[in-house]
Design a protein around this nucleic acid. Structure first.
Lengths: 242, 242
DNA sequence: TAGATTGTTAATCGATTAACAATC
DNA sequence: TAGATTGTTAATCGATTAACAATC
């Protein structure tokens, strides 16, 4: 078993609970106007549920999960209830069922197809990770302008020339494009991708890209922001310690 | 000039404003209890100010900046005022001065030292980026367990064996450690690093690490969460479009 | 001086928590 | 049935926006 913080939680309470039937009202109708704060928390629930499932945990109460995640039980129940009644009074949540619902909710059952543009270190890191498969996303191909890598295979993905990007996107089901190119290339790439019908752009270049149309979603990573926040915290502790 | 979204904003309004003296009350005393929401936004201000500076912009009003960043002018003024009066009525903010204040605030003038643990693709990607230098953080060294890379140089950084980690941290000024190792190594590494006095851990492994003591800050990246959120958005647009 | 734009207070809005009735 | 725990409403808390007086 993986060495992770769940180990201590998994032992202890008996897991001999019945694998009951769940989902009184199933998925709610009006999911549209769920608050952004709730949505931002969903991937974290998904992640913890996946771990619980992997550890063989069958059921969990909001209280137990709240201790594990360091949030209030109230918040967990409130959050989940935005989407439907996934639990059962007196019992809690069936881990497998809830995980399935989160998968459904987050689009992990849609088998979205993803390409990676840029075969540098970051592109390779992402290509070789479990990032995509863990979330039901299929890796399709990589793209680069460097003739030395075009035609080769990286982590099982063929590298095509970026000139082929438009054509490839139009002839395959590319839902998501990951941009790991240098800064200058990002903006024009985004335009090409959007025009070719790609629906989601995951941008790692150090520019904030914006979608032009309504149909495209853009996720800007801005990794450096996290580093800065860490620096702020370090400095703050330094100050308060004086 | 870099091709980025600032270009159109930079032109237009004349920049012939005087390089006036600023900072009526300078930095405020009680910075301690600034809300987390505000702090999370600081790196983004820093990023935009850096761009403005690079483009040669001398002054900017909250209104102009608000349009650039897609937030309200009110929020910008409110946020900055948590830390001090950095602007001037009737004039706006002096870009250089404000950027300096943000640097100071975010610890970018502390010259923190950083090491990268794990010399895989992600480690290399980070090592070769401008991530650190852009934020006044000094890259010191890399660490890995692979004898084939130990002793070599990556992007100007010597790779040491991870066995040397404790010793190195104790004998150098290591403020920040970046973990880009496989999942299983992350937890024990964090313990070692914390024990050796490292003050900030930037964790890219797919586990949520927690600091044991009060003095250490941990920033968990959870990159997959961003991918999931993107999937959610794609799915949502799909649904509403029906 | 007049115009511009901040700093700051007050009003609104949204998100979190507490509490408990419903119910398994 | 009794115990447990959800779903949901109401109360609290925090964050954002609007407005304007202060002032450069």
């Amino acid at each position: 078993m993986d060495n992770n913080e769940f180990d201590n939680v998994m032992s202890g309470i008996g897991d001999e609970a019945p694998d009951a039937v769940f989902g009184k009202h199933d998925m709610k109708e009006n999911i549209e106007n769920v608050s952004p704060a709730v949505i931002k928390r969903l991937p974290r629930y998904h992640r913890f549920l996946r771990e619980l499932l992997k550890c063989g945990k069958l059921r969990i109460s909001s209280t137990e999960l709240s201790k594990l995640m360091g949030v209030t039980a109230s918040q967990i129940r409130q959050d989940l209830n935005c989407f439907g009644g996934f639990g059962q009074q007196g019992y809690g949540y069936n881990v497998k069922y809830l995980y399935g619902k989160l998968n459904e909710l987050l689009g992990a059952e849609e088998a979205y197809g993803a390409i990676i543009v840029g075969s540098g270190n970051l592109g390779r890191a992402l290509a070789s990770s479990h990032m995509f498969e863990n979330r039901g996303v299929m890796r399709l191909a990589m793209f680069d302008v460097d003739e030395n890598v075009v035609g080769s295979e990286i982590s099982g993905l063929t590298v095509y020339h970026t000139d082929m990007l438009d054509e490839y996107c139009r002839s395959h089901h590319v839902d998501i494009a990951v941009i790991t190119t240098p800064l200058e290339a990002a903006e024009p790439l985004a335009r090409t991708l959007e025009a070719a019908g790609v629906r989601g752009i995951w941008n790692f270049a150090n520019v904030e890209l914006k979608a032009q149309g309504e149909g495209t979603s853009v996720m800007n990573m801005c990794m450096g922001d996290a580093l800065m926040t860490l620096c702020y915290e370090i400095k703050e502790k330094e100050n308060s310690g004086r």
